[in-house]
């Protein structure tokens, strides 16, 4: 077979708390028992896969965005910068031009339209990427600096790091932020297949339907994993049947899973039902890889 770019599997959910982290971390560890696997935590506002992946930290790298920096000597206080900034990231406060980094979208308008070049663009740290390695599992996470509000540029940057640095690893698992807003769109945009994690309750169904709508709009191939199967009701299954969405695996509702998870442990080696679910998911991933 001709070697090609990695197979990218995104793990997403319509809302938080459905078991996305549980699935991502256990699946990554499980897959790495057979072949080298990369797990990427793209939930840059609250990355917590690292709490479960007990791997040594190899290195870190700062991530930047471009922001304007005020040069008082050149400034004539005309206020054009503040007028053109739609985000009120640049404001004129008395005789000072203030830049609020966390509001800045790096559009360059203030900087390039300034008549005296008093707002040159400079790099500013918005987050950090951390690299971990344990046997054949590689793991990277990016974390926004507290107070920074824009996740999308950091998600995009993390994608390109995974692409450049880990091109030799055949399977990339992308743990996405929850929800259906821009960060999810950014996190799933390169994925070949998306696994939507849900739970068999009306909440789960409602959020799944939103996630499905999003994935269809993006033209993604996707399947569903039902977490905490056995409590709740059958409405999620019925929905998937009706909408012809494959349910690729189910993880049962067991108190033991919640207990192990709460202490930061991986569960698939102690709980056979979880291992079984991972085996099924691995088969689907294999199929998707072969069909590409």
């Amino acid at each position: 077979m001709i070697s090609r770019s990695p197979l990218k599997i995104a793990i997403a959910s319509g809302k938080g708390g459905t078991g996305k982290t549980l699935l991502s971390t256990n699946l990554a560890a499980y897959l790495s028992e057979f072949e080298p696997t990369l797990l990427v935590d793209l939930d840059v506002e609250e990355p917590n896969d690292a709490l479960f992946i007990n791997a040594p930290l190899l290195s870190t790298a700062n991530q930047h965005k471009m922001i304007p920096v005020w040069n008082e000597q050149e400034c004539i206080l005309c206020g054009k910068c503040a007028r053109v900034c739609k985000f009120h990231a640049v404001v004129r406060l008395g005789k000072t031009i203030s830049v609020f980094n966390q509001l800045c979208h790096s559009c360059y308008a203030c900087s390039e339209l300034c008549p005296t070049n008093a707002l040159p663009m400079q790099t500013h740290i918005v987050g950090e990427t951390r690299f971990f390695e344990k046997e054949s599992l590689s793991f990277i996470e990016s974390r926004l600096v507290v107070g920074e509000e824009q996740a999308v540029p950091l998600i995009n940057k993390t994608h390109s790091i995974a692409q450049q640095k880990y091109n030799h690893i055949k399977t990339h698992l992308l743990d996405c932020p929850p929800g259906t807003s821009c960060p999810v769109v950014a996190a799933t945009k390169d994925a070949h297949y998306v696994i939507l994690v849900t739970e068999p309750t009306p909440f789960g169904l409602n959020d799944l339907a939103l996630a499905v709508e999003t994935m269809r709009q993006l033209g993604k191939d996707f399947g569903v994993v039902i977490n905490r199967e056995g409590h709740g009701n059958s409405s999620v299954k019925e929905y998937c049947q009706r909408e012809q969405i494959p349910v690729i695996a189910s993880i049962p509702f067991q108190r033991e899973i919640a207990e192990l998870y709460s202490t930061g442990q991986l569960v698939y080696s102690t709980i056979p039902a979880v291992r079984q679910a991972l085996e099924q998911i691995a088969l689907v991933i294999k199929e998707k890889g072969a069909a590409r």
């Binding site: 985000f87 009120h88 004129r92 008395g94 509001l103």
Partner: peptide, 15 residues
């Protein structure tokens, strides 16, 4: 009615 930056915009008015 601004989506973002209402705090800094109102602060600018105070100045």
């Amino acid at each position: 009615n601004e989506a973002h930056g209402a705090g800094t915009a109102t602060a600018q008015k105070m100045y």
